[in-house]
Design a protein around this nucleic acid. Sequence first.
DNA 1: CTGAAAGCGCTAACAC
DNA 2: GTGTTAGCGCTTTCAG
Lengths: 338, 338
Amino acid sequence: MSAINIKHLAELLKLSPSTVSRALNDSFEISDGTKKRVKALAKELGYQPNPYARSLRGQKSTTIAVIIPERVNNFFGQVIEGIEDVTQPHGYHLLVYNSQEDVEVEKTIVSNLINGRVDAIVMSVTNQTSNFDHLNRIHASGVPLVFFDRVCAEIPTTKFITNDYESAYLGTKQLIESGCSKIVFLVLSKEVSTGKERLRGYLDALKDGGLTFEENWILTCSEKEDENIERISEVLAEGYSGLGILASIEKLAVSTYYAVRKVGIKMPDQVKVISFSNMKFPEILDPPLSIISQPAYEIGSSCAKILMDHLLSDKPQTLEDKTVTLPSKLSIRKSSGN
Amino acid sequence: MSAINIKHLAELLKLSPSTVSRALNDSFEISDGTKKRVKALAKELGYQPNPYARSLRGQKSTTIAVIIPERVNNFFGQVIEGIEDVTQPHGYHLLVYNSQEDVEVEKTIVSNLINGRVDAIVMSVTNQTSNFDHLNRIHASGVPLVFFDRVCAEIPTTKFITNDYESAYLGTKQLIESGCSKIVFLVLSKEVSTGKERLRGYLDALKDGGLTFEENWILTCSEKEDENIERISEVLAEGYSGLGILASIEKLAVSTYYAVRKVGIKMPDQVKVISFSNMKFPEILDPPLSIISQPAYEIGSSCAKILMDHLLSDKPQTLEDKTVTLPSKLSIRKSSGN
DNA sequence: CTGAAAGCGCTAACAC
DNA sequence: GTGTTAGCGCTTTCAG
């Protein structure tokens, strides 16, 4: 409120505000002597420029928005860490929003970002995002936009994803090779980019592995954990021998563990499990979980690097319409029978 | 950049900017007719007020800073979720910063917040924060400041914590009752408020339980996981019968699980473990982990509520100097021998 | 009920 | 090398 500003400094130094400003910004037209005087006083009084005055004047905010669909999640936490490690040294600030897997919330968030609040947006869309008008509007408004993980093919910009198709293919193949003759695919949304690709990989692996896919092998789950455990339990309770489960989301693997306990069967003897997951300690689960882990930190830092290049460039081109794939890693452990 | 602004709207409507502004803000002195006309056009053109112009003018930012020492962590994720759920409906934005357990980073972050960038700060200090000058400066600058979990007793403001002393006491007591005669306390920092309190609880429980504390029962760990596993392994390898471990941080419990595997001993037979932790699925670890879980979401929402009351008040008082304790919950599972 | 004008704090032409 | 002035987009006196 009563914070110190340039005018105030100028009065104390008997200089004009513009000189003070230039001195603080190391303009070449200011003498070393005044620069020192000005900086000394600024430091002494703990002067910090008002960021919003600067933003208004300079038409940039040194702020980036990050929109994720879920907060309590290792993957997104690591992505943000990657973003922050690249942007913080350049003095950028991060506005972090949680769309809570709700398109309406996503729309609201996005509508707040088209008028200069941020210099760029990094986002992963919700499971439900099938209409892209709000994202098109952002893109049309000229705010640089980068997608990661859950992307929008329709928007021509840079996207960072992982090899979802291939990973799901390999995971499924692994289950088949471990002796599974029925493989259930647990998914939250078949509409979202990652869900689609993982489903494709799963289906192709089934075909190549000589298994005949049946519709009910796909279990579309919800955000309600209890419900999911219940439905997975039903599948487990059928007692099909040679059952495998490919969980496309970590939390569904966790629900499977709970279901296994509920039904009272043995993993991996009676059901084998592989999951997409970025948990830190899959080895200490009972049994140790085979996971496909995404290079979350690298995804975040890559997004940020491309944005920094763009934002710090003298003649910013629009962001290239391309998709960069960073490979995930499959780690086999006991849950899948090995 | 070329975004639509009030002046632009005014020209199109053949009105003055001030009238447009008033209409959009539902001023009582504007006729319903013009209000409708203005709002219609604003909506049609997707007008969004420039937030920084508004901030500059109104001397408030509708933005809150959240500073956490670590990003990939369930506890902090849940806290932020709690904060966001309260602040988002009021139109507040969240700048989230990660101090990475580094006081210097914390200082830098904080110094960027004293000049109007945010209307309030919610923070949990780093493990190393023992000098409070930078926090005092914030407090002196008049920006409302709320601490949670890891607090600064020295700064007279509102703090939300959990019953660290009591929880550690109960956890230790539980280990003693399960037959432990030596209990090792794993801690990252004995300087930080939570570390101090948990240590006190642990020590008092030892005393009341009739165990004679020895200096080497406290194992001060580092941020290096490998090193921690190594040092915990050494303790485990001593083969002390009746060994218990109280981990004051989740990641140290995880390291203990790895150490147990490395050394090849049995949990809970040869070592019993209880940990502070907010992990989502302690039941599916091998063995299921006894945890003291903090009410993270409530802590976050409580911080936010008090700030909202303050910020939305007509005559904001300074935030009361008080500490609110929200109780943690001890859940006993097999890792501690039950 | 509406308009004109000032100013939030900063920077960048434009003077000199 | 330094000062004067204008203006970023908005709200809010003050006029009428």
